[in-house]
């Protein structure tokens, strides 16, 4: 399946992916309203890596694991793998117990700022294509299928 891959050697840690992730998961879908007024949680984690010479970064999203631990751990049936293999969270069912967060080895599930649910990457399935990838200024995150990813490994 297609998922988002991060390229450490290209990531600038600028945070634009987060801005557009929040926008894509907002009600208004408007970049200013979403980031200013709506308390949306980005599903991307930007991590800093301290290297001897410089700071390096990478952006991390849900890996949509084949055997997703979060789906197994979910107590309410909110977390599920859809027919395309995308791990998604039904917000109306989620009780924010954080069992998913407890088991995700990537730390890719976040408690939402509003505290009522968790936030995770859904590959922007409702918007179309992943907005973080579309807006990354340096091609540091890409949507790749398994074959393409294998070739780049």
């Amino acid at each position: 399946m297609k998922k988002v891959y991060a390229f450490e050697n290209r990531c600038l840690g600028c945070g634009i992916c987060e801005v557009y992730c929040k926008t894509a998961h907002s009600k208004s879908k408007d970049v200013i309203k979403a980031n200013k007024n709506e308390n949306v949680t980005s599903a991307i984690v930007i991590e800093e890596i301290l290297q001897p010479k410089a700071i390096s970064y990478f952006a991390l999203q849900c890996r949509h694991c084949a055997d997703a631990k979060c789906v197994k751990a979910c107590i309410s049936g909110a977390m599920y793998k859809d027919e395309n293999g995308i791990v998604r969270n039904k917000e109306e069912k989620c009780v924010c117990c954080l069992s998913c967060l407890l088991v995700c080895p990537f730390g890719a599930v976040k408690k939402s700022k509003k505290g009522k649910t968790v936030s995770k990457c859904d590959l922007c399935i409702e918007v179309g294509e992943p907005q973080c990838v579309l807006h990354c200024p340096n091609d540091a995150i890409k949507v790749l299928d398994d074959k393409e990813a294998e070739a780049l490994k």
Partner: peptide, 30 residues
């Protein structure tokens, strides 16, 4: 990002093999 701690337990990862002291700061995949 508690799941990363869980993974460290699960994998029995040697902490000395890691990039930084997990006691010292918040955990991350880094």
């Amino acid at each position: 990002r508690a799941g990363i701690y869980t993974a460290l337990i699960n994998d029995k990862t040697k902490l000395s093999s890691l990039e930084y002291d997990i006691k010292a700061k918040d955990i991350g995949l880094s």
